[in-house]
Design a binder for these strands. Structure first.
Length: 549
RNA sequence: UCCCUGUUAGCUCAAUGGUAGAGCGAUCGGCUGUUAACCGAUAGGUUGUAGGUUCGAGUCCUACACGGGGAGCCA
């Protein structure tokens, strides 16, 4: 564990390794294991996660940790001592600092510490008297507790050392990450994000950055947020040519020349004067764009924010959420569903192996039996089921006395209650529903051969992955690669075919069967952590009437 | 957007139309190698906002705002 520091070499300067400054009997462990090409960035103190690791910090090691106070308990024994739990977010646990009363600032500082004061603690790693391998840091003569930042008024600090409701903490979104639950959620978001990139990278997928601003209104998934630099707030003449006076025409033309002024034609904003020269929106999906790269790079994926302007108030919907959209060339729906299943299982495995501490907490405090449930999901193949079969199962359930609010009928979309019945009651495992009636699905989904699954009507190669507790977590399909069939679908659905010129080009020039899906990242978070509300698995949730923070 | 439901101390919740309370947290003190610590005391309130009914409204009525659950839409 010989540690050197490489510096940038100036003119005439020699590159020399510099010895660590500290030469104690027991050398402190390397604070961070740094990869090659590391430069000046180095931290001289230890992360709590390393201080708690017997391998990195054996008993007797002198360490410095920096973090925030979670709790403080005092004792009068041995002439006074305090137990200060210090956490720095690097792992679920805090390390307990046992501070003896003989350090100089004990009475003045240590006994006044309250929740979330920031501190720098230097002491010696020791075993706790009770817990088996549990480590703590003992601060006695020679050790130090330096207060970096006080909590001015502990009574005013919104995060008290007690249970808070998630609803309350949502209003304190800037502070809630300091709690056990939201710290764990934040680490899980990171863990799963990295796992997503690793999963695709290892399988030869290329990461594509699809645009966030889109000029096409043809992505076909819900209401969109408008992007504009025009100042819609100022009063403007709204006229149509028939009744426009010479005076108002002049006024309108003058207005149009001012910066950020919307011009109006026929009572509507003329977007040719807008920043992009046309009406533009925030993306609702990267799929159409990522298909272009799929049809050149074979295996691609996007992972980015997505925006839906639905007035949707449920525990599973956000106006701004993150979505992963892989797209594979030369693939059909079966391959697509296998990718989806592998992907979800990979994420579960990553969570269980990389964040065992946080997952243990979710299992104990958020959803009892979470680990058992996920283990079951890992070990069981997903149930694949044609839509037509699902309808039959639901009809049989009704015949047996199951009560649904909405009727079950081939050709209509399944309601939430139907999906929940299938995945939570009937199969009790993730279910992949495939081959939906074409009239309830998007134009780009591939038309199946007549009579597929014995369906009474036309179906498309679409799939939804349903999981217990969350519902639809993935929506995907094989894409229509036949230009004539695609054109017919676009026309049939009354969509503006001209707008799809570049999408259609993919079918005109060397078309290939291809398929893909979209996984809602926050829904995956809910599924894997057991958190009940999508607003609690994203740092700053954006929902109707709420864009605070 | 629709249906249901809620809004009282810093937080979580009580309070027949008749004097606004508890637990936790905070502060102070006591006890203790503590760890959801424990014991005692103290402070803390224009009952979401605006109207209305009533001798009297936290409580009943209306509107609005915001939160939660469900539905639709979807990931």
């Amino acid at each position: 564990m010989f540690s050197v520091r490489l510096r940038r070499v100036g003119p005439g300067e020699q590159l020399l390794p510099r010895m660590r400054r500290s030469r104690r009997i027991r050398r402190p462990p390397t604070p961070l294991e740094l990869p090659p090409f590391s430069g000046g960035f180095r931290m001289s103190w230890l992360r709590v996660v390393d201080a708690l690791s017997p391998a990195k910090s054996p008993v007797g090691t002198r360490v410095t940790v920096k973090g925030w106070v979670r709790t403080r308990r005092d004792s009068k024994a041995e002439g006074g001592l305090s137990f200060v739990a210090v956490h720095d977010g690097t792992c679920f646990d805090a390390i307990q600092a046992v501070v003896k009363g003989d350090i100089p600032n004990y009475a003045s500082d240590v006994t006044k510490l309250t929740t979330h004061c920031s501190v720098e603690v230097t002491g010696v790693i020791a075993q706790t008297p009770k817990g088996g391998n549990e480590l703590q840091v003992e601060v006695a003569t020679g050790g130090e507790v330096k207060v970096i930042g006080w909590v001015d008024d502990p009574d005013q600090y919104p995060i008290q050392p007690k249970q808070h409701t998630f609803e309350y903490l949502r209003e304190q979104a800037h502070l809630r990450v300091r709690t056990n639950t939201f710290g764990a959620v934040a680490r899980m978001r990171h863990c799963l994000s990295m796992a997503i990139h690793r999963f695709y990278h290892e399988r030869g997928f290329y990461y594509v950055h699809t645009p966030i601003i889109t000029g096409s209104d043809c992505e076909g998934a819900g209401n969109m947020f408008k992007v504009s630099t025009l100042d819609m707030m100022r009063p403007l003449p709204r006229v149509s040519p028939e009744n426009e006076s010479a005076e108002s025409k002049k006024l309108r033309e003058e207005f149009s020349k001012k910066p950020n002024m919307p011009a109006w034609t026929y009572g509507q904003v003329d977007h040719s004067t807008d920043f992009f020269g046309k009406e533009s929106h925030l993306t609702v999906s990267g799929q159409l764009n990522v298909e272009t790269h799929c049809c050149a790079l074979s295996r691609v994926y996007t992972f980015g924010p997505t925006f839906r302007a639905e007035n949707s108030n449920t525990s599973r919907h956000l106006a701004e959420f993150w979505m992963i959209e892989p797209e594979i060339a030369f693939a059909d729906l079966q391959a697509d569903s296998e990718l989806a299943e592998d992907f979800i299982k990979f994420l579960i495995n990553a969570a269980l192996t990389e964040r065992a501490d946080d997952m243990k907490f979710f299992d104990e405090r958020i959803e009892k039996g979470l680990l058992t449930r996920l283990d079951h999901v890992l070990k069981t193949p997903f149930r694949r089921l044609p839509y037509t079969e699902a309808i039959k199962i639901l009809e049989q359930a009704i015949a047996k006395g199951e009560k649904f609010e909405y009727p079950v009928k081939w050709g209509t979309d399944l309601q939430s209650e139907h999906e929940r019945y299938l995945t939570e009651k009937h199969f009790k495992q993730p279910v992949i529903l495939m081959n939906y009636p074409k009239q309830i699905k998007a134009f780009y989904m591939r038309l199946n051969a007549p009579g597929t699954d014995g369906a009474p009507g036309d179906t498309v190669a679409a799939m939804d992955v349903l999981v217990p507790g969350v519902g639809e977590i993935i929506g995907g399909s094989q894409r229509e690669e036949r230009i004539d069939v695609l054109d017919a679908r676009i026309t049939e659905m009354g969509l503006p075919i001209k707008e799809y010129w570049w999408y259609r080009d993919l079918r005109r020039f060397g078309t290939v069967p291809h398929a893909g899906f979209g996984l809602g990242f926050e829904r995956a978070m809910m599924f894997i952590t057991g958190m009940q509300n999508v607003r609690d698995v994203i740092p700053f949730p954006r929902t109707p009437k709420n864009a605070e923070f």
